[in-house]
Structures are given as structure tokens and as C-alpha cells.
């Protein structure tokens, strides 16, 4: 990215006063968040605060009503884009619950996805040989066996394998903005280290990561530049990494008590 462009539009993602809900029930009540290239942000919060809703809306999941606010992705209005357009433009969601798709071969799926993205970028599609070479290299990063590629997408994978597979897909697709929704949940410490190591090695000055997590644990391995606390549909506090440690020590109640509107 050129310096001029950075100056003109330094934000990768700008969420402005986002209000959204499901079937008349408000979940997000005015979220503001700015992410710049090269940054790692963590959004933390107790259950039901709206963390996963935020991730789903950013990825384009249908079924949410956005009643107010907007989301700018570079210069584009993200909320007007189809999920596949967002993905082709570099938005990636690592699912909290990766979906099992029986009958769709993993290699076939990932090659189709990568080639859609490459086509969108004006790059030549990879043939089977080129794709396999790329995939083998990326698999090492996540310590995944090659047999996984012969199996249907996520079918019969263990919880840990599913999460590693998400990050493996991220490694292959090389998104600009990766949103990791509770990627740490259900992982034992060894798997957590592998996943975190993978994520860290994918970090570059021109991409960004948004970690959605309930626990501080993940942040021992992926160090965020900014930590935000989401509570009742709003970001009620933002800070540096220290904030996550304080949350670990004192829990969420401490912040909630300090917030004037909840006191």
C-alpha cells in the first residue's frame, strides 16, 4: 500500500455506530471500531454481549437487521456486499463452529475458493499441481496431516482439527482482514499453541486480525495491539494489552460497575 493511500484512507475497517438485531431484538447498540493495516485487535466480553453477532455481520451472514450505522471496508460499504464479495475482497471469518459439508472434498473446496479470490484479483487460477504445492507448504504451518485434504470439508474432524483447518484455510487464502471467532474455544493447550503460532506467522504489515474471545488465554499467544470490551452491544472500554490482563484478574464485573450507564 502506498504512503499516499495510507494517508488518504488509513483505516482498513471502520465500524460506525452499528446497531443490529435479530427478529426485533437489539443485539448491537452502537458499536464503533477502527482497525488499521498491521494491527491486531481483540474484542472481549461476557456471553451474550454480541461478540459473535459482530463477527457474523462482518462476514455477511443473513438474518440480522442492521437498523443504524455503517461499516466501511477500505472505501467500500461492507454491509452492501454479498458474503462471497467480501471474501474475494479479503475478509475472512474463522468460524466458531466450522460447518461439516459431507460430499464436498476439502481439496476441491479450497481450490475453488482460492481460484475465485485469485480471479477477483486478476491473477491466473492455479492448476492442481500448483495448488498442491502451495497447500503442502501451508499444512506444515498448522501441523495438519495431508489425509485431511482427501476428506470432505470438516466431516468427522475433531474439534481441534476443525479449528486448525480454519487457520489453514486462512493461510491459503491470505486475507487482508481475518476475523477469528472464538478460535480458542475447545482447544487444548498444545492445539492453542499451534493455532496461535499459525496466526502469528500470517501477520503482515498490510493485513489485520480481529480476535473475538471470551478468555484472555488466547492473548497470551497472540498479542493484541488493542483490546476492546464489548458489553450489552457496545464497546464500553478500549485499551492496550494490559486491559486483557486486568480482565483476567478482576473479571468483567469490575468494568461494568465503572460504567455510568450500568452503575
Amino acid at each position: 500500500m502506498s504512503i499516499e493511500r495510507l494517508i488518504r484512507n488509513p483505516f482498513m475497517l471502520e465500524i460506525r455506530n452499528l446497531h443490529a438485531g435479530v427478529e426485533g431484538r437489539a443485539i448491537l447498540k452502537g458499536v464503533n471500531l477502527i482497525i488499521r493495516p498491521g494491527e491486531v485487535h481483540a474484542v472481549m466480553g461476557p456471553n451474550g454481549s454480541g461478540k459473535s453477532t459482530l463477527a457474523q455481520i462482518l462476514a455477511g451472514r443473513e438474518g440480522y437487521d442492521v437498523s443504524e450505522g455503517e461499516v466501511l471496508y477500505g472505501e467500500k460499504n461492507l454491509l452492501e456486499m454479498d458474503p462471497e464479495e467480501r471474501a474475494r475482497e479479503g475478509v475472512f471469518l474463522a468460524f466458531q463452529y466450522p460447518v461439516e459439508i459431507p460430499g464436498v472434498n476439502s481439496t476441491y473446496f479450497l481450490k475453488a475458493a482460492l481460484n475465485e479470490i485469485r480471479k477477483h484479483k486478476g491473477l491466473a487460477e492455479l492448476d492442481a499441481v500448483e495448488f498442491l504445492a502451495l497447500v503442502k507448504q501451508k499444512m506444515k504451518l498448522l501441523d495438519l496431516g495431508e489425509d485431511l485434504l482427501k476428506r470432505p470439508v470438516n466431516e468427522g474432524f475433531s474439534g481441534g482439527e476443525k479449528k486448525r483447518n480454519e487457520i489453514f484455510q486462512m493461510a491459503v487464502l491470505e486475507p487482508k482482514l481475518a476475523i477469528l471467532d472464538e478460535t480458542d474455544s475447545g482447544l487444548d493447550i498444545d492445539a492453542l499453541k499451534i493455532v496461535s503460532n499459525g496466526v502469528n506467522r500470517l501477520k503482515r504489515p498490510d493485513n489485520a486480525q480481529l480476535l473475538i474471545t471470551h478468555y484472555q488465554r488466547l492473548l497470551n499467544y497472540i498479542v493484541p495491539d488493542h483490546v476492546h470490551v464489548l458489553f450489552d452491544g457496545r464497546i464500553v472500554r478500549s485499551g492496550g494489552r494490559q486491559l486483557a490482563l486486568e480482565l483476567e484478574e478482576k473479571g468483567y464485573d469490575w468494568i461494568i460497575r465503572e460504567e455510568p450507564q450500568f452503575a
Binding site: 462476514a59 454479498d82 460447518v99 473446496f109
Partner: peptide, 12 residues
Amino acid sequence: SIFYLRARGIGL
């Protein structure tokens, strides 16, 4: 399943 595929760049 449809959303999962679309979220990886595959058209509807």
C-alpha cells in the same frame, strides 16, 4: 453450509 462456502469466496 451455503454461508460457509460463500464466506470463502464461492458464489451462491
